[in-house]
Design a protein around this nucleic acid. Structure first.
Lengths: 142, 142
DNA sequence: AGTTGACTCTGTAGTTACTACGGGGTTTAT
DNA sequence: ATAAACCCCGTAGTAACTACAGAGTCAACT
């Protein structure tokens, strides 16, 4: 768990590694969700691995349907701040429960999709039984 | 599997049951993701349970971070359309794989959050070990 | 029948979270 | 030293809603 190499890099490099567009990174900075980086003498933003970690986390959260304020709260948990232990416990549990629900829904969807795929597997029959498979209890829309 | 009761209801009722705002329902209709319902003589929209099912599915997908075009594709799978079996197989598997990745990330987050909560459980110690728990390999940000 | 209140209609404008672009300065490589 | 590639900031555009205004509809009392 040695402290990671603290090389600094530009916004373009950060963008590539995090999979987040440059404009979006600046947008996150402006909205306070990603801390202002140091600047070079020329005025260029200079990032560290901590920025990268945080940015990847933000990107993932967005892909998983969390709002910016959700993410702000989750990051506050990671950033400590001056919250009380009890607050943290409650907030954390609420988030964990919401996430569990998301997982359940995704698991249902994945199961149904794989069922559909397996029915369409192998033979290229003129009409695959997709409609039927979607009417039943295990419907994608259920 | 009897055909569900085909009572019709207004947009307000649909909104309440689906947990989707009226304006959003009209927006979905305009963007073609929710089929145009019948109208009463007075011009009111008249919905069925099929609309409800579809709308709940759309809402969930949005909460899970799917874009409108993702949802359009998923609904196309449910709606049959004139796609070939092979197409469906490929698309379905791609979606299933993406969903599996989402599940993995959410499971990591849930595990980490519950760990944090359990550390903050019971005693109201002056400083809970949140920061440390977030630095390690099982960090929320990892 | 009339009227009140809750509901719905359409269309337009505002919000959130990006995304693209334009005009300029900086850095790097030849 | 001069392009090419990169970065700066600000503004405008997009996607997916969300709110509001002004008018019509419906159900239920008197």
């Amino acid at each position: 768990m040695a402290k990671s190499t603290s090389k600094r890099f530009t916004i373009g490099v950060l963008s590539k590694h995090a999979g987040v567009k440059i404009e979006t990174i600046r947008y996150y900075e402006k909205s306070g969700i990603l801390p202002d980086p140091q600047r070079t003498t020329g005025g260029y933003r200079s990032y560290t691995n901590e920025h990268l970690t945080r940015l990847v986390f933000i990107r993932r959260c967005r892909e998983l349907g969390f709002s910016m304020s959700d993410i702000r709260e989750l990051l506050a948990l990671a950033d400590d701040t001056e919250m009380h232990c009890v607050d943290i416990h409650d907030r954390t549990m609420r988030h964990a429960d919401a996430i569990r629900t998301k997982i359940k829904h995704l698991q249902n969807m994945e199961r149904t999709l794989r069922k559909i795929a397996s029915k369409c597997d192998g033979d290229d029959a003129p009409q695959c039984p997709i409609i039927e498979s979607l009417q039943g209890a295990g419907s994608l829309l259920s």
